[in-house]
Simulated scan of single mutants.
Amino acid sequence: MSFDVGEARDAQLAGTGEPWTLVFIRDLRQPPPVVWAALTDPAELDQWAPFRAPRDLGETGPLTLTMVDGDTEEETPAHVRVVEPPTLLEYSWGQDRLRWELEPHGGGTRLTLRHTLVEPTDPASVATGWHVCVVVLQHLLDGDPHGVIRGQAAKDYGFDELRDAYRKMFV
């Protein structure tokens, strides 16, 4: 099956050092309540996100998110801090903070992800990971699910080239 993840776009880094925040913006064709469900429902998250969630993220409180890479799984503590359906979701993921903002835009939704990273890491790799995830999310929302792309499997979809493009964008 051919699956095009597109080109690097609509991402920037905020801040001057650690921690820094990746600001990642995408326009989706569905209205905010539909996108909200995909961001919070564990069954939908398992089809596009880099982790599995044991419960609905639309409820505040602690939980454990499980990163999956092939046969390897890594559990990371998380805490849902802000839930304002269908416009704002914020939670910790380990030491990182993810803030998902949804606003109506042209009949669909403008999704803004602000991923604040505390641990030193490659911002281009983080942007590329979210890029691939959101492309898979859009297919899911369009009723054309591709199946989740996690970890090393992303290399089969041009991860390295896309990461290089984001790296150039962030210089």
Rank of each mutant, 00 (worst) to 15 (best):
E75Y: 11
A127W: 05
A154N: 09
A154E: 14
T128F: 06
H131K: 05
G147E: 10
L111E: 10
Q95C: 05
L117K: 03
P120Y: 06
T128A: 09
E73I: 03
K168M: 11
V132N: 00
D142P: 11
H115L: 10
C133D: 01
S125I: 06
L65F: 08
L117W: 01
P85Y: 14
G70P: 09
P77G: 06
L98Y: 01
Q138M: 05
L117C: 13
E119S: 11
T109L: 13
Y91L: 15
V136A: 06
D164G: 08
D69L: 06
H115N: 15
E90S: 09
D96T: 01
V82I: 14
E84C: 11
T109Y: 11
R150D: 07
E119R: 12
S92Y: 00
D142K: 11
D144R: 15
R99V: 05
A154M: 15
H131A: 04
F159Y: 13
V118K: 01
T76M: 14
T112P: 09
T72K: 15
Q152K: 13
D69I: 10
D69H: 08
R81T: 13
E73F: 02
L89H: 02
A127T: 04
R99W: 01
F170R: 09
I149Y: 00
G143T: 01
E73L: 08
L117I: 05
Y166A: 03
L162I: 07
D96R: 02
P120E: 04
P120W: 07
K168C: 06
W130C: 03
L88Y: 02
D69M: 07
R110F: 12
Q138Y: 07
E74R: 15
D144V: 12
R167C: 03
K155F: 12
L141W: 03
A78W: 01
D69R: 09
Q152L: 14
T128S: 12
T72N: 11
V80I: 09
D142L: 13
W100V: 07
M169G: 03
L89G: 04
T72G: 02
V135I: 13
V148C: 04
A154S: 15
L140K: 04
G94T: 01
H146R: 12
D164E: 14
E74Y: 12
L65E: 00
E161T: 15
G107R: 02
G143F: 04
D96F: 03
T121D: 13
V82Q: 04
Q138L: 00
V136S: 01
R163W: 03
V80W: 00
A154K: 14
G70S: 07
T76I: 15
L141E: 02
Q152H: 14
A154W: 08
D156Y: 08
R167V: 02
E103L: 10
Q152G: 12
Q138V: 03
R97I: 13
